[in-house]
Simulated scan of single mutants.
Amino acid sequence: MSWIKFTLWLSGIYFTYYAALIFWDFFRDGRPPATEGSHELSFTEHIEPVRAAPEATAEIYGSSVISSGGVSLKQLFNLAREEAIEFTRPVSF
């Protein structure tokens, strides 16, 4: 038996198995039909968006810097060299 013949047999078996499962679910009568009065949970929450101005956040936190942003790769290595970064676990690549 060659590999092509083996893969064709294997794919045919998988196809018939999954086709049988699909037909079994399609023609099965065991499920109750979905009715209009069925019990269905739905959760809705009314949330109103609030727009915060940068001046308001600066007053709250006492700083003019709102977001520091990221650092470049060179700056990251400089911070690591200065031991300004705390390593909590090893880095995997």
Rank of each mutant, 00 (worst) to 15 (best):
W3R: 12
I4S: 12
K5T: 13
F6R: 02
T7Q: 05
L8C: 12
L8R: 13
W9D: 06
W9H: 08
L10Q: 01
S11Q: 01
S11H: 00
S11L: 05
Y14V: 14
F15A: 12
T16W: 04
Y17S: 12
Y18M: 05
A19W: 03
A19M: 04
A20L: 07
L21R: 13
I22P: 00
I22C: 09
I22D: 07
F23A: 06
F23G: 03
F26C: 06
R31E: 07
R31S: 10
P33Y: 12
A34W: 11
T35Q: 15
T35C: 12
T35D: 14
G37Y: 09
L41G: 02
L41W: 10
L41K: 08
S42G: 01
S42P: 00
F43N: 03
F43Y: 10
T44D: 15
E45I: 11
E45D: 09
H46L: 15
H46A: 13
I47Q: 15
E48H: 08
E48S: 14
P49N: 03
P49D: 07
R51L: 12
A53D: 14
A53V: 07
P54G: 04
P54A: 02
E55W: 05
E55K: 05
A56T: 12
A56V: 07
T57C: 06
T57M: 15
A58R: 15
A58F: 04
E59M: 14
E59P: 04
E59N: 14
I60T: 13
I60H: 13
Y61D: 01
Y61H: 04
G62N: 06
V65C: 06
I66K: 07
S67N: 15
S67T: 14
G69T: 04
G70Q: 10
G70V: 03
G70T: 05
V71E: 14
S72I: 10
Q75W: 05
L76C: 08
A80S: 09
E82D: 10
E82A: 10
E82G: 04
E83I: 08
A84Y: 02
I85R: 00
E86N: 04
T88V: 09
T88P: 00
T88A: 09
R89C: 02
P90N: 14
P90T: 10
V91Y: 04
S92Q: 03
F93K: 08
